[in-house]
Write a protein that binds this DNA or RNA. Structure first.
Lengths: 230, 230
DNA sequence: GGCTGGGTTTGATCTGGCGCAAGGATCGCA
DNA sequence: TGCGATCCTTGCGCCAGATCAAACCCAGCC
């Protein structure tokens, strides 16, 4: 984010050129309804996943039960690759934000994959690298930006990952509640609501229940990148 | 962090059992005075590094010139491994927080290393994995915790990474200014100062100019993990 | 000794945005 | 078509923490 347009400039390349799907290691394809969990925080990392279609949210829960959304995963991406990073337990919960189709393999196959498919190792590194920089951006934002800017960033991030052009503007492709937004930005439901109302009055966005359409992305960019007044 | 004692439970194993130092790829050992930069944000990623001794700080600068400290690197760790994560430019600046000794290799050797030393790939993954979870913790903290808790966490983190027992208590092994602390926690100098003064009155810490000694780590743990009142 | 400059403390004041509370809109279901 | 469950909006009061302002302390250094 930050300059959100830059973050995902990197090509969202398919994970591998080779036919992962027709793999000897027998991937298990699976459909998931929106809201279903793929795996939960703390479970042992026995499988890793590839998101074929849909949208996944990685969620962490604080000791006192509050949720915060750590990151979003788009189709075509590997996820749940904690086993490859030396974690014995998933560090976050993965929830389907929309209806999803995922492939998964036993963690024990990771090693084979890396050796068998040349692009696999590097591609993984890239995925991880991308997420790392995403997270760094998040940290900087949290540390320095005002709430309104953070919300603007979050929204831009979303339309960037799953925006769909309509005649109204760009809409976010899946159901998004105010709650999701405040979990992404570390604020409260109320504040998010106020911010969105304000934007709606200024014609930056249009929002209905569980849906947000950005009519003027540029305005949001301006808001998100405004200096913290000085 | 969070439960800061858990984060670095993972053994800070040496990078490889094999003699990296006497490597054919001719590492360049280098001394660095505290305050010197190893590499800067935005430079092309032509080398990667191993910290033999000392302490490194990874810093990011926001568009309006504010610095925030993204993470600390302890001796024995690889850093500047952005090239291996598919970044063509370093995403942060690395500053020596104390006098340091680093080895470095041209990025082009990365591939060789992975193939030549069996432990190298996995070790890298672990390093990255550890940092990723560190960063996730940071995000959660930033989103949910009070300033005092964040400062407590930061201090605990520091004594954990470079604590040195003295008769006074545990002291942080390198010079640390209030400024460093507020850059780590995303607050202001003034607030950090107030918090530390308060702690000093309560005998949790003793602090002199550019030095902090924690007399009662447990108290800080309690503070850092206190529920956000509910 | 006086002076400069980085680091720190402390008080006074201001304000963003959180908590609380109440109410409205929309949906699904009986 | 009526009822409960979700989801969203808005007004108000308040407080943590930012900002402003003024010194102080210590270390070098001329």
């Amino acid at each position: 984010m930050g300059r959100p347009l830059a973050t995902s400039t990197a090509p969202e390349s398919a994970v591998s050129r080779k036919p992962l799907r027709r793999d000897p290691h027998l991937a298990q394809p699976k459909r998931l309804d929106a809201g279903a969990a793929v795996f939960e925080e703390g479970q042992i990392t026995d499988r890793f996943f590839l998101l074929l279609d849909g949208f996944i949210r990685a969620i962490r829960v604080t000791p006192d039960g509050e949720q915060i959304i750590a990151l979003h995963i788009q189709s075509g991406q590997l996820f749940g690759i904690a086993p490859a990073l030396g974690h014995s337990h998933y560090p976050a919960t993965a929830i389907a934000a929309a209806d999803c189709v995922v492939l998964s393999w036993a963690a024990s196959h990771w090693h084979d994959f890396v050796h068998e498919y040349d692009g696999f190792g590097p591609e993984t590194s890239n995925t991880v690298g991308r997420r790392v920089s995403e997270m760094k951006e998040r940290i900087v934002e949290m540390a320095t930006q005002q709430v309104e800017q953070r919300v603007a960033n979050a929204v831009l991030h979303l339309i960037h990952q799953s925006g769909r052009k309509t005649d109204q503007g760009i809409e976010i492709a899946f159901l998004i509640t105010r709650q999701d937004l405040f979990e992404m930005t570390g604020t409260t439901l109320h504040t998010v609501s106020r911010v969105l109302s304000a934007w709606e009055r200024l014609d930056h966005v249009k929002s209905e229940r569980r849906k947000i359409v950005v009519t003027d992305p540029h305005k949001l960019v301006v808001i998100s990148s405004a200096q913290a007044h000085r």
